[in-house]
């Protein structure tokens, strides 16, 4: 049997198994720590910083930090929620996120976080960067305007023999996630649907079928993201 440890997140007493990350342990105890690049079953990367927490007055990412006995975690404080909100705002202004015309609207995790943090307008100026769209695959559209470079598609969408459909290209401000041309052409239907599902935003769109769920019945129409975890 795994060793059980106890620690605190804000006012909550958390019981966790040794080896669990803070995000996993929080979730198991009904405490929601916002995440974005993190994806269940994949090794956490800690790149989006959405899950920023404070331990011993230091900022850490809850998705990569292992839970340890007796640790005192600050999570849902005004300071941390404002930092998280500012990350959402930065993502909104550094991409081109036109929610009204996006098929992922209502099911988008970035938008849902903006709703949760009550983003009425980003505090930063809009950049309107010029980005491309790759619609060459018969199954999906890869829209760079909405990509937040979280790597979830790269890590989770693979062929049965382990080859990657998606990969990083270029570096720095030119970094983008691109679809392998040959594999993209042969992409099976189920994989294409899964790719759209795993993308937190509307950067991977399944072709020839859209807006299946009407407004009011989408994932985040009635309840904020994380409300399924919170007790």
């Amino acid at each position: 049997m795994k060793e059980t440890i106890r620690f605190r997140i804000d006012e909550h007493q958390i019981t966790a198994e040794k080896g669990q990350t803070v995000v996993e342990a929080a979730k198991a105890n009904g405490v929601y720590i916002p995440t974005l690049c993190n994806f269940e079953g994949v090794k956490p990367k800690g790149c989006c910083r959405m899950c920023t927490i404070k331990v011993n007055n230091r900022f850490m990412t809850a998705c990569t930090t292992p839970a340890s006995a007796g640790m005192e975690v600050e999570s849902s404080t005004d300071e941390l929620n404002d930092i998280r909100k500012s990350i959402v705002e930065l993502l909104f202004v550094t991409g081109n996120h036109f929610c009204p015309s996006c098929e992922k609207s209502g099911n988008c995790e970035l938008q849902a976080l903006a709703y949760r943090f009550r983003m009425m307008v980003p505090r930063f100026p809009y950049q309107f960067p010029q980005k491309g769209i790759d619609a060459s695959s018969p199954r999906i559209i890869k829209d760079q305007n909405r990509c937040i470079l979280c790597k979830r598609c790269i890590k989770t969408i693979k062929t049965p023999d382990g080859r990657d459909y998606f990969a990083y290209r270029n570096r720095g401000t030119k970094l983008e996630v691109v679809l392998d041309e040959k594999l993209g052409n042969e992409m099976p239907d189920a994989v294409a649907r899964q790719a759209m599902e795993n993308c937190p935003v509307g950067s991977i769109i399944y072709k020839e079928q859209g807006f299946l769920k009407p407004i009011g019945k989408r994932k985040f129409d009635k309840k904020p993201i994380g409300s399924d975890i919170e007790v």
Partner: peptide, 19 residues
Amino acid sequence: VSLGECAIMGGLPALRNGI
């Protein structure tokens, strides 16, 4: 009061930004 996406972020007309 800025009412709606266009007033807040340019909205669909702003799709032309950069062109």
